[in-house]
Design a protein around this nucleic acid. Structure first.
Lengths: 350, 350
DNA sequence: TTGTACGCGTTATCAA
DNA sequence: TTGATAACGCGTACAA
């Protein structure tokens, strides 16, 4: 036995020889069995099971031009949101008979083109993109390779492709309304640098729109947080609380976080400063990480339907691969407001 | 129906024609440029850049039998540990010029074979496996496909392959010693069902070994936690605390968690019961999730070098692909003990 | 040094 | 209904 050097899987030729038919017939058994005589089909089937044969997807891809592969490009696999979406997408892909090829940008902007070309080289049938904002050459690379794509969470300006994301505007309005109803009047929205990231921009815009249209009762402010500006954030929240406290009508202050990364940072600051969420300062964050219930009185959150987002993106893409010709869709999925102690003024008052 | 505009990438034939040479010459330009006349090489290069040609990795794979693809099979992509490892591995793969094909089992045992075969169909050159315990047919599938594999975190019994993981035994000893030094004497190790998962078994074994060899001073107990037995865990911890409290020498109770999932559950129970970590009950958990510092006085942890584990696994595999013939290696990476308030008796005493 | 021809494992187009 | 045979895009003995 020389299976020690290299184990070759049986080929279609081997099956054909074993069944005493041509390769074409074996191929038909898989792709057009209806054209086969029962007798012949049985013989082929026997040979297939005997040899434990399975067609090589690679060779199929080369021949057909389709690979049943989907390229998934993600800006930063560290981001729990991305992983959650990835999970839903990968699941739907598997169910649809597709395999996922993953490319992580590691937040390295400008590698998008490279990623697309690399995956296109493997004949992926389409792309799911959860990447950065300034898609320099992204669209060009997509066009050049002639592959459809679905954008998740972040849309590229000037790119006409299917787009799946949280309904950020709707979620923001729900968040703000909830806070206002609970007596919070001094609001601050903390976001990572907006740059070209559409979801961040849209949330900030929705926040500004809300606060300006409720200007008589509510004061709103946007804070751009980045790693370097850590202490500035603490000062800003402190000022916010002070502003609320000094107002004669007992306005309450609340912070809205743009995502889980920011939430973590704010929770950390609050722990240091010994602020009580809900009482000293209200809080509500986009994303609902598993640990949200464990911080203080529990952190209120906008839970994103990450699994559905990933799943929708994948099925959306697969539909296109199956010939769907509809114009680019914009699918916005609703978030779910999860109310916990951090946005409830009754908590911690006692 | 085939009127869909398929954008074809330029082929080697097109380059050859454009440069006025044969396909073989173009192929040599990429693989054996040293054999080429400078004159010809220049012409080929010109044609390549003009046409923006890049070889098709798929066709190369079919022809060579190697694909520069690595199959990564993970038991559960929901698990942050798996994701962290995945991240390190994917990075190292990219740096080595390999792409990752991801297959998530979604904890569906028995799909390992299926996953291996699916990925092998795409000619992946090797596997990184972070899967379940009872690898029924896993080894057989691997052998049948003749591909090397590296095991991460979980080793399969009777499988001779490279293995990369945390030094569980060493970490457990460090954890226990730390707790004992801080006055904790009633110890309980909480793990998910051990079943066939080697890392869980090894940690439990190390714990038992420690407590039996320190039996004069320390009492140790292992608790198997599963979703269904949630309330049992609360009772067990309560009993542990009671045992410690009733002892006249003021022994202190501490819980060790086997991973982040269990840690979350314990933290949740502690919040409900209003236990103060460090004072009422000590705590130390395997894995150091980002939120560990935020719970109570901060949760002590064994931080796993997940990035290094992933990276090591990948390079290990790539070495093999490059012809490395050494016998199966067992690479155990040290964890890092991160001490926070939950294992410090001074905290919360006031 | 370069070109020819064949193989890699399939599918698809013809004839038969 | 079935079977040769030519793609698919590339690597590589072998010949020139």
């Amino acid at each position: 036995m020389n299976d020690r050097l290299q184990v070759r899987r049986p080929t279609i030729a081997a099956v054909a020889a074993s069944a005493g038919v041509s390769k074409a017939t074996v191929s038909r058994f898989f792709n057009h069995e209806e054209l086969l005589t029962p007798d012949i089909a049985a013989r082929v089937k026997k040979a297939i099971t005997e040899l434990d044969y399975a067609p090589s997807p690679m060779a199929q891809a080369l021949s057909r031009g389709r690979s049943r592969l989907i390229g998934l490009i993600v800006a930063d696999i560290t981001n729990p949101y991305s992983v959650a979406v990835l999970r839903g997408a990968e699941k739907a892909c598997q169910e649809g008979g597709y395999l996922v090829m993953l490319f992580n940008l590691g937040n390295a902007i400008g590698r998008e083109r490279e990623a697309i070309d690399a995956l296109a080289g493997y004949q992926v049938d389409g792309f799911i993109l959860n990447t950065l904002g300034r898609g320099a050459g992204v669209m060009e690379a997509l066009e050049r390779n002639g592959k459809p794509a679905v954008l998740v969470d972040r849309r590229h300006s000037g790119m006409t492709a299917d787009f799946v994301a949280l309904d950020s505007a709707g979620a923001m309005v729900a968040a703000c309304n909830h806070l206002v109803e609970n007596g919070y009047r001094e609001l601050m929205y903390v976001t990572e640098p907006k740059k070209g990231v559409s979801s961040r921009r849209e949330r900030a815009t929705a926040f500004n729109k809300f606060s300006s249209s409720h200007a008589t009762r509510v004061a709103g402010q946007v804070f751009e947080y980045s790693e370097e500006s850590g202490s500035l954030l603490e000062d800003a929240i402190r000022a916010l609380i002070a502003r609320a406290g000094s107002a004669k009508d007992g306005r309450r202050a609340a912070v809205i976080s743009g995502n889980a990364v920011v939430t973590l940072r704010i929770a950390s600051i609050a722990a240091q400063c010994n602020w009580k969420f809900g009482a000293d300062v209200g809080f509500l964050g986009f994303d609902d990480p598993e640990w949200a219930p464990l911080i203080g009185p529990g952190l209120s959150a906008i839970a994103q339907p990450t699994d559905a987002i990933g799943r929708t993106a994948a099925t959306c893409l697969i539909d296109r691969l199956h010939g769907e010709q509809a114009p680019p869709r914009q699918i916005l999925l609703p978030g779910q407001l999860v109310v916990r102690g951090s946005s409830d003024t009754r908590v911690g008052r006692d």
